[in-house]
């Protein structure tokens, strides 16, 4: 009886274990199946690089949305990468233990805040701020812009980058640091020549993971970025990233022909791009691990 239970349990668990991998495959094919309807009519390249978005006339160019995504993500990375890396270095190399134990839960908390809350904060604080600083650069902006989206996104990906970077730094053996310090190097010199060099692969992985988080973030960006379907020319212009496009049009999804197919294609593109970056990051992490050993 007990052995029977053991066998049954084992089989059930084994079946469930195959599920996550299967889910990945299923997701790809599900989205692909849905987007076939539009791919049958137009070429993939043509859809990606044409810029006309007129669903009622049957034009579904994804180009402005791709550019919008790139802009917002680039702004977010420019802000988030240096700040989060500096904080990670501070926490792992400089900060006293007590402060580290105090700061880590706060970072977890920041990563737990729902994206809608980030959006509300963006609308309340960042959007007016951007509206006010735009004239300083001789431009008018309503505040709902790529810059606002980038700033909000940057805050959202802080925890991701910090978390991974901290893990990478903590994997670097202490004797290496001690060797450097005993040669008379200052803390910063040790950090730069030992910690950062040894952890370089891991740091790249952290940034790539932050990047893929940023690419897919939806609600917060949607709320502050302005949503004008044209490629932005400066950071003060409104943009319209890909996830925002998908989220914003769910209402009309079944009323216009091919619309759902076009949106599923957008989701598929997002899926593939994010996936590529994720796998890339994992690869860097594995290499980093091997290097640290």
């Amino acid at each position: 009886m007990r052995l029977l239970k053991e066998k049954a349990g084992r089989t059930v668990m084994f079946i469930l274990t195959v599920l996550p991998t299967l889910l990945l495959v299923l997701m790809f094919f599900g989205l692909f199946r849905k987007s076939r309807a539009i791919l049958a009519l137009k070429s993939f390249g043509g859809l990606l690089f044409s810029s006309g978005w007129h669903p009622l006339r049957g034009e579904f160019g994804l180009f402005p949305f791709l550019i919008g995504t790139l802009w917002v993500t680039a702004v977010a990375l420019v802000i988030a990468v240096p700040i989060s890396l500096l904080m990670a270095v501070y926490l792992s190399e400089y900060a006293p233990r007590g402060f580290r134990d105090f700061a880590k839960p706060l970072i977890d908390l920041l990563s737990g805040i729902p994206s809608v809350i980030f959006g509300v904060w963006g609308v309340l604080v960042i959007v007016p701020l951007v509206g006010r600083i735009a004239p300083l650069f001789g431009r008018y902006s309503s505040g709902y812009s790529v810059l606002a989206g980038g700033i909000v996104l940057a805050v959202m990906i802080f925890p991701t980058i910090i978390h991974v970077a901290l893990e990478v730094f903590s994997a670097i053996p202490f004797p290496l640091r001690e060797a450097s310090l005993s040669l008379g190097a200052t803390r910063w010199e040790t950090t730069r020549h030992v910690v950062l060099r040894k952890g370089s692969q891991g740091i790249i992985a952290a940034c790539v993971l932050g990047l893929s988080r940023a690419l897919g973030e939806t609600m917060a960006v949607l709320m502050v970025v302005g949503n004008v379907p044209a490629a932005p020319k400066s950071v003060f212009d409104a943009g319209y990233p890909l996830p925002a496009l998908i989220a914003n049009n769910y209402g009309e999804i079944l009323s216009v022909p091919l619309y759902d197919s076009a949106l599923m294609l957008a989701a598929l593109v997002l899926f593939i791009v994010v996936q590529t970056f994720n796998i890339l990051a994992r690869w860097f992490l594995v290499r980093a691990e091997r290097r640290a050993e």
């Binding site: 996550p20 997701m27 897919g216 599923m264 997002l270 899926f271 970056f277 990051a281």
Partner: peptide, 29 residues
Amino acid sequence: LAELTRFSFDVLWGIPSIVYGAFGFVLMV
């Protein structure tokens, strides 16, 4: 199997929630 599954979890963790939404929609339909 364990390595593949852990890798899948890592990758699934990185998928944006809007893509889950779209996939849920596909399933629903």
